[in-house]
C-alpha cells in the first residue's frame, strides 16, 4: 500500500495543517510509515503552498510527491500546476467554486463547493481545511475518521473541538452526497 498525496492551495488556507493531520493519523494511530513535507514562499500569507504526504508500509526515502494518486487543489493556480502530474486512476478533489480544471487527465474529478458551505455554516473560512479533510476521507479512506479525530483533539484547544467535528462532518456529508450522484473509478 502506498498513497502519494499532494495538497495544494495558497498560504493561509490550512493546506499544511491538513497534510500534517493526515500523515500523523496514518503514522501514530494506524502504524504506517508516513512523511510530510511542504513548500511555500517567504510570505506570511498568500503565495503558492503545497504539502506532500506519503503513506506506505515500506520505508520512505525520497520524501516528495512527484505524481500523486490523490490531489487536492484549492486554487486555480494549484490545479493548473499539479493536475498534469496526477497518476492514472487518481482522485482529484477540488472546490468547484474556486477551481475550474482545464486539463483532462485519466483521473476522477471530484468537485463540489466547500468554501461556500463552510462560510454559511461557520461564518468564517478557518474550518475549510477540516471540511476538505472530511471530504477526502469519505472519498479515499486514506485514514479512518477516528484517527483524524484523535489528531484534531491533540492538536487543537478544546474550544475548537466541536467546530472541527462539525467541519469534518460537513465535508463527509458533501462528499457522500456527491457519491450519491457520481461514480468513482
Amino acid at each position: 500500500m502506498i498513497n502519494r498525496i499532494l495538497l495544494s492551495g495558497s498560504g493561509g488556507q490550512g493546506v499544511i495543517t491538513m497534510a500534517i493531520l493526515l500523515a500523523q493519523a496514518a503514522c501514530l494511530y494506524e502504524g504506517h510509515n508516513a512523511i510530510q513535507s511542504q513548500s511555500y514562499g517567504p510570505e506570511a500569507r498568500g503565495g503558492a503552498t503545497r504539502s506532500d504526504v506519503i503513506i506506505s508500509d515500506e520505508p520512505i526515502y525520497y520524501p516528495k510527491v512527484q505524481h500523486p494518486n490523490i490531489l487536492v487543489a484549492l486554487t486555480n493556480e494549484a490545479s493548473a500546476k499539479y493536475l498534469k502530474f496526477i497518476r492514472p486512476n487518481g482522485i482529484f478533489l477540488f472546490d468547484s467554486d474556486l477551481v475550474q480544471p482545464s486539463t483532462k487527465m485519466d483521473a476522477d474529478y471530484v468537485g463540489f463547493p466547500m468554501y461556500k458551505p463552510v462560510m454559511e455554516r461557520f461564518g468564517k473560512p478557518q474550518a475549510l481545511n477540516i471540511c476538505v479533510l472530511g471530504a477526502l476521507l469519505e472519498l479515499t479512506h486514506v485514514t479512518s475518521f477516528d484517527s483524524i479525530r484523535q489528531c484534531l483533539k491533540a492538536r487543537f484547544r478544546p474550544a475548537f473541538h466541536q467546530a472541527n467535528e462539525d467541519a469534518l462532518h460537513l465535508g463527509q456529508d458533501l462528499a457522500a452526497s456527491w457519491k450519491g450522484t457520481h461514480r468513482l473509478g
Binding site: I20, Q24, A34, S37
Partner: peptide, 9 residues
C-alpha cells in the same frame, strides 16, 4: 531546510 521541516515518526 528539508530535514528541519519534514515530519516523520
Amino acid at each position: 531546510a528539508e530535514i528541519c521541516h519534514m515530519r516523520e515518526r
